[in-house]
């Protein structure tokens, strides 16, 4: 009987904790564990990329970011370099955007662009 009441106390206590915990904390934990991955896509004659967080499409980039015009990446490797940089930024919880300077340093743009 003592054992039974102990089990009952534990069960009720667990339920209380479950109710008391904010539900958001669970989704936050899941969110932080979600893998970030990128995918290279074909856009006409050129290439772009997608950034996925788990099953959620976060960014779809058909054209080179930051610059005027609708210009695709010339090669899958160029798109991959930028997608990798964004993935790295997301994993560091920093801004997932690309600047013109970064495009120059990745040899995707030349300085005079």
């Amino acid at each position: 009987m003592i054992k039974f009441s102990r089990i009952l106390v534990i069960v009720v206590f667990t339920i209380c904790i479950w109710i008391a915990l904010p539900k958001d904390s669970f989704s936050d934990m899941n969110h932080k564990r979600l893998p970030v991955r990128s995918k290279i896509i074909e856009v006409g004659q050129g290439y772009g990329y997608e950034i996925w967080i788990g099953e959620k499409l976060l960014v779809k980039q058909e054209f080179i970011p930051a610059i005027n015009g609708e210009i695709t990446f010339k090669t899958p490797e160029e798109a991959r370099k930028v997608a990798n940089l964004i993935t790295k930024k997301l994993l560091e919880r920093s801004n997932p955007e690309i600047s013109v300077e970064e495009l120059v340093s990745l040899n995707i743009l030349t300085l005079k662009h």
Binding site: E50, F63, P65, A66, I67, N68, I98, S99
Partner: peptide, 25 residues
């Protein structure tokens, strides 16, 4: 403004597709 810097990047949100794209600065 992101707390450190003033920003000039520009994005679109696709309402149907539920995703973002970075556009011209």
């Amino acid at each position: 403004y992101d707390g450190d810097d003033y920003l000039n990047s520009f994005w679109t949100y696709d309402i149907e597709g539920d995703f973002w794209s970075q556009k011209a600065d």
